[in-house]
Write a protein that binds this DNA or RNA. Structure first.
Lengths: 365, 365
DNA sequence: GTTAGCACTCTCACCTCAAGAGTGCTAACA
DNA sequence: TGTTAGCACTCTTGAGGTGAGAGTGCTAAC
């Protein structure tokens, strides 16, 4: 038989909420189970330890707290944290001082766009003391901006600059030695004809290119036909590369401060963390999460067992997407033990995702 | 009084060397101090434990082995490992099977050059069970290949593709709104005039550009002068960006498998490793090492205390530089506990650095 | 020069035990 | 009726003690 709540007002009385909050905030800093005496001593509750004990028992019955063993204090459950995040956490706007600190850090690398993602991870890590995560903004459908081909005997190396997303560099094996002048002609032609086209649009044209190289009346071994065949092959490769970059759910996960999490007492020497790290390297997971996350701005918190992969059951994620849906989107966030300063983490993540929004606006304006 | 060596032949007899080798190879796999009995049992030495004990005592007197405590077996000292690496390690060419495995892994991403560095780190990690390290090839003096400018109201974003090294992306704040057509004119002109020039050569031309925008007889607020000023500013920025990329000692350190090292019993839950990791993030260290390392091909081994930074005294590095001196060079290697399978690590590092050489040859051919 | 034998040393795992922390319950109190 | 003091109880934690085991160094015999 569950003990009746001592509170008369609703499912969780104000006093119980205050005590839950005190337990969580105390546990977040102390990392040790918190007992009734410590609570009374440190948080002016105006109650005796015995009374607090009663409330703690209620909160435990409600599934918000738990007990490592009989004679230990209480620690929050994942549900307890969830309640805290939903109802008790302080305003999640970051204090102005910290906003300034972050803006300052970003100011240091003001114009080096390719470092922003890394910096986002680093900043989140240093501000929250947990691990910081960031993905580069993933474009919805990249369009070709510019193509460069460089001859290397039987190889051509290409650089493909899309209008959105990250630059691709690669090599193409040729069936015959090709000189730079021919390659430059090919690149010029394709730049002129394919500029601003998406992978799909380029794919649609590839058959025409192949047809050109095989059209009747052309000497199939002659220079014209061979160059036309080259054009077709390069176009095909561009399309494929763009397509891959569209498909690649997330190009890369930048992370920093994993060591911060390693140091948390709950993970000391445990190998739980190993699994977390390897799960993280699987970018598909973050990509999935990104898919489930609603429009940019909103902050999503995944606490402990709320994460579907078993490896992630011991950590919490505070994530926000950024970018423009339909153009390019990415994720920034924080990974830490479930014993996390959620309020501060949410504030920081929210602020950094705002900064990343500004960046994306600039990049794809 | 040091005990006289039992061997008559030279400073370290053949038998002592064989036993040292057995101790090291046993310790590398067992990670526990190895005693005389285990040695006799597992390595057909044709000697009794008592005799082996005598030799072990000699080796300890010579500073090649040590004793955690009286009743424990022997473990190699850093000097012991050094001797092993210099004199006892097997041929460092990698077995054909493993060569094939690595080639296969690289084949999977055959043409995505920007992934090679990461892949090198990953491969080294998985093949050696230690942490894999790789730096991108650092160009000696990058030359401009291509510049792209895109208008964004008061900002221009630029993409700078050097003939060597990595692509740079950034932004330039303008003093007035500039349209895309003007920016394209500027980019075309600079592409024509500055192609294949190094930072130094471009810097030399910048004053001329500025002079042009301020030349007498030109309306200083007119469109011509303003465009000339823009050309000058962009040229200056290109020079600076190229210069920075030349100066940046190492663009980035790719690493993988740090968790492998974390798992090594000698680092279980210790915070030594934390310091190692943070030292690694400081790219200057690897850059310094790169400076001290002789031409590509040769494999350099830094064992324990041979590393100058105190944090690195508990780990060993097996490194090789790759690339073409004067063109572009980088480092690949392995980091692990001093208790490392040096022979195998050296073989793997040597082979991977060879692969990276091939890559650089292709990229900068 | 090599080996068997043996005393010796040190670690490690295990046990016990007392101290301490914190609980839940009950009875008294406002 | 809610709050509090008191108290017995439980469980962890660290200190101290102990015996088994591993491995050495020495010595005397081969």
């Amino acid at each position: 038989m569950a003990r009746r709540s001592r509170s008369a007002s609703g499912p969780l009385g104000a006093r119980a909420q205050a005590i839950l909050r005190a337990v969580i905030e105390e546990y977040v800093v102390s990392a040790t189970p918190v007992g009734s005496a410590a609570l009374v001593e440190r948080y002016r509750l105006g109650l005796s330890p015995a009374t607090v004990r009663g409330v703690l028992a209620d909160l435990e019955a409600a599934g918000l707290l738990t007990h490592p063993h009989t004679s230990a204090g209480r620690i929050p459950t994942d549900r307890g944290y969830r309640f805290y995040v939903e109802s008790l956490a302080d305003s999640t706007t970051l204090p102005a001082v910290e906003q300034l600190m972050i803006r300052h850090q970003f100011g240091q690398v003001q114009f080096a766009t390719d470092h922003w993602f890394r910096l986002a991870a680093t900043t989140l890590a240093s501000m929250t003391g947990s691990a910081g995560l960031a993905t580069a903004a993933k474009p919805a459908a990249a369009r070709l901006r510019w193509l460069d081909l460089v001859a290397q005997n039987h190889l051509a190396s290409f650089i493909l600059v899309p209008r959105e997303g990250t630059i691709k560099q690669g090599q193409l094996s040729l069936h015959r030695p090709v000189g730079q002048s021919e390659l430059s002609r090919v690149a010029n032609r394709l730049n002129a004809e394919l500029a601003d086209l998406t992978a799909a649009a380029i794919e649609a044209r590839v058959p025409a290119y192949f047809a050109e190289s095989a059209r009747p009346g052309l000497d199939h071994d002659g220079p014209q036909a061979r160059e036309a065949a080259l054009v077709a092959r390069v176009a095909e490769r561009i399309a494929r590369t763009l397509r891959e970059s569209d498909a690649a759910s997330i190009e890369e996960v930048y992370s920093d401060g994993l060591l911060n999490v390693m140091e948390a007492p709950e993970f000391a020497q445990s190998e739980k963390l190993r699994r977390v790290f390897s799960a993280l390297e699987n970018r598909a997971y973050l990509a999935d999460l990104l898919g489930t996350m609603s429009g940019s701005g909103r902050i999503h918190v995944f606490i402990g067992h709320e994460n579907s992969p078993a490896e992630m059951r011991d950590v919490s994620l505070v994530l926000a997407s950024y970018g423009r849906p339909g153009r390019a989107v990415g994720v920034v966030g924080v990974l830490g033990p479930t014993r996390m300063a959620y309020s501060h983490a949410m504030g920081t993540v929210g602020f950094v995702s705002g900064l990343m929004n500004e960046l994306v606006d600039h990049m794809y304006s």
